[in-house]
Design a protein around this nucleic acid. Structure first.
Length: 167
DNA sequence: CCCTGATTCGC
DNA sequence: GCGAATCAGG
């Protein structure tokens, strides 16, 4: 699919809003995240404000798409020695009840929703702003931790409702 | 393994 | 100019 003026403008807008390349690709449709990244570079938009990534590749050994060199580099990776032990937070807060406001750049549409994303619907499906939660979920439930609590309400909450209902 | 952006280069 | 393949990294 061609980079029409409209699509380029949309790309610029979404990139400025902080959407990731894959998210933008999902919204545009017809392009991969690689295409988006490539276009971003050609437009000179790369390097978003607070991205202090220094992922520039090491120079020197890479010839072309040299497979030998790649393998050598890959073999040299993975020297993870010690990980800091983290203390678990023992304080448990009660489950929140209010709906969360999902930041614009984290919202998922039907096109960007992945298997690993929370499918809790937010808003009116007939409206443009309709989206899904989109945060990370585990494999056992279709929702993130927060929305799982809303979907499967704890016994306590139901007891309270029952009590209200009966008197 | 999920994801992120960056780079190279055949097309 | 385009973007797949591949990279480095969280």
């Amino acid at each position: 699919m061609a980079w029409t003026d409209e699509r380029v403008e949309l790309l610029k807008k979404l990139w400025a809003e902080g959407l990731s390349a894959s998210q933008i690709a999902g919204r545009l449709g017809g392009v991969t995240r690689n295409a988006v990244i490539g276009k971003v570079h050609r437009l000179g938009l790369s390097g978003r404000a607070t991205s202090s990534r220094s992922s520039a590749p090491r120079r020197g050994a890479i010839t072309r798409h040299g497979k030998i060199e790649r393998r050598r580099l890959s073999a040299r990776r993975g020297n993870v020695a010690l990980k800091r032990l983290t203390r678990r937070n023992t304080i448990r807060r009660p489950a929140p009840v209010e709906e969360l406001v999902i930041p614009l750049h984290e919202r998922a549409t039907i096109l960007t929703l992945k298997e690993s994303m929370c499918r809790w619907p937010i808003g009116d499906p007939t409206e443009e702003e309709f989206h899904f939660c989109g945060r990370k979920k585990d494999g056992t439930v279709p929702y993130c931790e927060h929305h799982a609590r809303m979907a499967y309400q704890p016994v306590q909450a139901r007891r309270r409702e029952k009590r209200f209902a009966s008197g």
